[in-house]
């Protein structure tokens, strides 16, 4: 069983100046499973994701992709890892100067010696996966937000990755576009066996399709388990988080000083 993890984080710490964003994160994302990392906004989720894909170095700790510690790699040393992963950015991050088809073919052209005709077929296949086969020649600016994300997902899948990372895949989308993306994540995992790591604050989605949920709170892992385990947790913070209640241990007041004292100071 020792090798069943795809991505493993060991004691990741990250500070921005004096502010601690991540204070020792440990979790395992297993092979061919969907792992959701949940946390409130500004809770260090994006920082963690950037560290997981090697775009940011942690101050301390390891990120293991199989047995390779990617925090030790720099520059082109990361390339073998990067060719094995895909990433869906929050805003899609499609190149606006290229058409949908060119965006998807970009990594294929870059990393394979394949012929143009074969690349064309591959692009069509990737677009079919996300249900947008007729949109090849349009520019990203001509598509809706939800469609842009689907194209971005097709691009993330271009090199048949083992792992796909998702940064807030459904934020800013209407309910239907959201469920389309959620269903796509679930299908990719089920049909193609892709390991999915999703960073989000959308609890409902996570409960629906996750194999495992990791909840971040104040830079540490608050809870970890299957959706059923998380739902059954007796921790009041976890309960507040999954029910989304404004009342509970997580205070509405983000400031730490006493309000009355603050007013009386000057």
């Amino acid at each position: 069983m020792g090798n069943s993890h795809m991505i493993r984080a060991n004691g990741i710490k990250k500070n921005y100046g004096a502010r601690t964003v991540l204070n020792g994160i440990d979790f395992i994302a297993e092979q061919k499973k969907i792992t959701y990392i949940l946390g409130s906004s500004g809770g260090g989720k994006s920082t963690l994701l950037k560290i997981l894909i090697g775009a940011l170095k942690p101050d301390d700790g390891q990120v293991l992709y199989r047995d390779m510690d990617i925090t030790k790699l720099r520059g082109t040393g990361l390339d073998p890892f990067r060719k094995k992963i895909g990433m869906l950015f929050q805003q899609g991050a499609l190149l606006n100067s290229l058409t949908v088809g060119e965006n998807i073919s970009l990594p294929i052209r870059e990393h394979t010696p394949l012929d143009d005709n074969i690349i064309k077929i591959m692009v069509k296949m990737k677009l079919e996966l996300v249900g947008l086969r007729d949109f090849e020649d349009l520019y990203p600016g001509q598509l809706s937000g939800g469609m842009q994300k689907r194209v971005a997902l097709a691009r993330a899948l271009a090199l048949d990755p083992e792992v796909v990372f998702f940064d807030e895949p459904t934020s800013g989308l209407d309910p239907i576009a959201s469920s389309v993306i959620t269903k796509l994540i679930s299908d990719l995992n089920r049909v193609l066996g892709i390991t999915c790591i999703v960073v989000t604050h959308a609890v409902e989605e996570a409960m629906k399709i996750a194999n495992k949920i990791v909840i971040l709170y104040k830079g540490a892992v608050l809870a970890e388990g299957t959706p059923a385990e998380i739902r059954g947790s007796s921790d009041p913070i976890v309960q507040q988080f999954i029910t989304g209640s404004p009342d509970g241990p997580i205070s509405f007041h983000a400031s730490s000083r006493d309000f009355r004292e603050d007013l009386l100071v000057e």
Partner: peptide, 16 residues
Amino acid sequence: TMKVSEEILALETMAI
């Protein structure tokens, strides 16, 4: 503009 819309990070992530 590409930098702030994460397009450059996307290129790096694709090992480009």
